[in-house]
Each structure stands twice: as structure tokens, then as C-alpha cells.
Nucleic acid binder design. Structure first.
Length: 399
DNA sequence: TCTGGGGTCCTAGGACCC
DNA sequence: TCTGGGGTCCTAGGACCC
């Protein structure tokens, strides 16, 4: 039995958040729609293809998007259905093969080598998956098929919207080399500019660049990584998800903060949210990081490593409070606060069960104590609705 | 209507140790 | 008496991805 020469599929939903909204609101079909923050400082998370034709893009401020497309319908992304729809889609993919590696809420790699007895080609598998997602969930998707993960991912992008593209093994370089260097995984705006200064504009240009020159420009690890990808060398197998390395909560305020009590209260609130998600994931962590973005957008962080892993609101807050001091905010106005816990370790099951209630009690005490101190607050976060905690929805896995 | 939120990984410098 | 050289850990910042 021959093997598939192109066994890797990259399955990617088309403007996922928008299409989920269209399931619930069919009147949005055919119109320029974007999902994003509807507060003062909202940005676009996902744009329909109608909106994209006006130049609306992800991460664009909503105001700028409205200027480009005055008829744009912006839907608030606060509701929690994306995670549930994502779970349905992953279930469908796993019904084809167990070798599914999710890389965000709306995309995954599949290794379909094992299906060669049941399908004549990987193209047939891809078509089957796309049809199943469309029929059972009602969402359009695109599929890239190739011999490696990276080429499959680029192929799915070029298949969009609602298409499929197979790059025949042996022709990867013909496909990759004419493409813009920004299509390389790991080349963003900054690196693209830096490479452009060297005259590197296409993936082919980068492939022909001496390794030493590249390394000097982008650093050792990136140079090796990009150099390999440019030659279609990507031996990474499709595998299960890696363990979570950090859990964080952050928020941009609709009005900048400068009052120290308010800053403390908002920080505590984030400690509480991080603690809730740590408990749910049954992990604890060593390192607390406080992130502060000032009104001029300069961003600093202060972190502290605790010798023992911590997980409760109280413990995180004890550390975060010291970090606020070290951040030397000194009355400056800030637009964003964030709290993260990293260096995560699994909390052993039974210990978690026993300590769970104590932790919850301690957290509640800490929160109550601070509420007593500060009273009812008047700060309105940029997010209009409270963040749903009970789903992997919204931005949790990216969009 | 200036610039979200949740993540990952890399680099560089200083402290510290031998 | 004018300054070693690794190795490791911690911290801060930043690029990147969706």
C-alpha cells in the first residue's frame, strides 16, 4: 500500500467568530460584519469577507474600521458560544482521525496517514471534513494539504475563503518562494521591515540569504527557524497539545486610571479571575507578573518568583501588591492592568480536592476584605459585559 | 472614536556560584 | 591591587500568533 505523499491537513475556519454570529443571526449573511469590542477602545477580532473588501482587518480599532466601511455591523464578542461551536468542530475532525492538533479555537493540524485504506487521497479526506463541518455546524472552512505543517498552513490561507489547496510533494519550493516573506510563520511587521532593509522581500529571497547575515539581523533561533521554513524543512509531527505555560487576565479601561486605591482594586479583581481559572485547570504557579500600560502606551512588567507554587486569590494578591509598589506608578495614568501566573505545575488531584474549599474561603476573605476597604467602585472596564468564565470562548484561544 | 486579550517563545543583562 | 569564565536562575522587554 502506498503512502500519502501529502499527509498533513491544516483545517481553518473562515472568519470564525463572524460565522458563529451568523448562525444565530441569519440577517447578518451577505452584509459587512465584524466581531469586536464595542466599547470606546474596541478593536476588530474577526471580519467578514464583505468587510475585508473595504480594508477592515483584525486588530484594527473599531473607529478606523467604521471609517473604511460606514455600513459595517459590529457585533460584541462578549458572548460565549465560540468555544462550544469550536468543540463541535473538533469533534467532527476527531471522527476522521485521532491525530488532531488544535492550535487555536478555530484551526487544527491533522495527520491523515492512517486513512489511506479508507480514502484514495488526502484531498478526499479534506473534502469530507469540509462538507461535514458545513452540514453539521453550518460554518465554512478552508483546508491546506501538504507534506509538512508549515506548507499546509500557508496552503489553507491561499485556499480561503471556503476552498481547498493541495501542494504536491516536490513542488513546495515552487509554491513558497514567490510568496511575500511576511507569510513565514514568525515574520511579523517588525521583522518584515528589518528584512526589507536587507532587500529580502520574498521567501525565496530569504532562502538565498547567507545564514550568518540572517542571524545577525534576527537572532540565532529565528534565523535557523526561518531558514528551514524557507526551504520547506519542517519535520514537526502532528501531536497533542502542549501543557499550558501561563494563565493571565488583563483589561483595558475605557477611562485611564490614576487613583491608587482604584488601581489596587482592579488588580485584585484580576488576581481573583486568574485564581478561578487556575483552580479550574487544576494548576498552581510560581511566578506572578504585573503588567501596566500607561496612557502613552509604554508598557512595563514586574514579576516575582515564589519558591512554592501558589493558586489562591489571596496568595497572588499578596505578591501582586508588592509588584504595584515596584512598578513606581507615581500617579501616572494607566490604560491597562494585567496579572499573570506562570511556571505552572499540576496540582495533584486529591490535594486539590482537600484544599479546594480552604482556597475558596481564603479567596473570598481576601476579596471581602478589600471590598470593605474600598467600597463600591466606579470604574467601568472597556469590556461591556462580564467575561464568561465557564467556557473556552472569546479570546481564550485566539481568533 | 488610536492601538483587545490570551497566549508562546526568545534575548539580554545582572546576580550568584564555583 | 585593575579584574576569568562558565553555568544557571531570575527579571524585563519585546516580537509574534490567533
Amino acid at each position: 500500500m502506498t503512502r500519502f505523499a501529502e499527509p498533513i491537513l491544516h483545517v481553518d475556519m473562515d472568519s470564525f467568530f463572524v460565522e458563529v454570529e451568523r448562525l444565530d443571526h441569519p440577517e447578518l449573511k451577505g452584509r459587512p460584519v465584524a466581531v469586536g469590542g464595542t466599547g470606546r477602545r474596541g478593536v476588530i477580532a474577526s471580519a467578514s469577507y464583505e468587510a475585508r473588501s473595504f480594508g477592515v482587518r483584525s486588530a484594527m480599532p473599531v473607529g478606523a474600521a467604521m471609517r473604511r466601511c460606514p455600513d459595517l455591523v459590529v457585533v460584541n464578542n462578549s458572548h460565549g458560544r465560540y468555544g462550544a461551536v469550536s468543540a463541535e468542530i473538533f469533534e467532527i475532525m476527531r471522527s476522521f482521525t485521532p491525530l488532531v492538533e488544535g492550535i487555536s479555537i478555530d484551526e487544527a493540524f491533522l495527520d491523515v496517514s492512517g486513512l489511506r485504506l479508507h480514502y484514495t487521497s488526502p484531498r478526499e479526506v479534506g473534502a469530507g471534513i469540509r462538507a461535514a463541518i458545513k452540514e453539521q455546524v453550518g460554518i465554512p472552512s478552508s483546508v491546506g494539504i501538504a507534506s509538512t505543517k508549515f506548507v499546509a498552513k500557508v496552503a489553507s490561507k491561499h485556499a480561503k475563503p471556503d476552498g481547498m489547496l493541495l501542494i504536491i510533494a516536490g513542488t513546495e519550493l515552487d509554491f513558497l518562494h514567490p510568496l511575500d516573506v511576511g507569510e513565514l510563520w514568525g515574520v511579523g511587521e517588525v521583522t518584515e521591515k528589518s528584512l526589507s532593509d536587507l532587500g529580502i522581500r520574498t521567501i525565496g529571497d530569504l532562502a538565498d540569504t547567507p545564514a550568518a547575515l540572517l542571524e545577525h539581523r534576527v537572532g540565532r533561533a529565528a534565523a535557523r527557524h526561518l531558514g528551514a521554513l524557507a526551504w520547506a524543512q519542517d519535520p514537526r509531527p502532528v501531536e497533542g497539545g502542549t501543557p499550558t505555560r501561563s494563565i493571565s487576565s488583563e483589561g483595558t479601561f475605557s477611562v485611564d486610571l490614576s487613583d491608587p486605591d482604584t488601581i489596587e482594586r482592579e488588580t485584585l479583581r484580576m488576581c481573583d479571575q486568574v485564581a478561578a481559572r487556575l483552580a479550574k485547570a487544576r494548576v498552581a504557579g510560581h511566578t506572578v507578573t504585573l503588567k501596566v500600560r500607561f496612557s502613552d502606551f509604554t508598557t512595563i512588567s514586574r514579576s516575582s518568583r515564589r519558591p512554592e507554587p501558589i493558586a489562591s486569590t489571596h496568595e497572588i494578591w499578596e505578591t501582586a501588591r508588592g509588584l504595584i509598589e515596584r512598578a513606581s506608578i507615581d500617579g501616572r495614568s494607566i490604560r491597562l492592568l494585567g496579572v499573570a501566573l506562570s511556571d505552572l505545575v499540576d496540582v495533584e488531584g486529591t490535594r486539590q480536592m482537600v484544599l479546594g474549599h480552604e482556597r475558596i474561603d481564603a479567596a473570598a476573605d481576601a476579596v471581602d476584605g478589600v471590598r470593605d476597604r474600598f467600597g463600591a467602585g466606579a470604574v467601568i472596564p472597556a469590556r461591556v459585559a462580564p467575561r464568561p468564565r465557564d467556557s473556552g470562548s472569546g479570546g481564550r484561544n485566539g481568533a
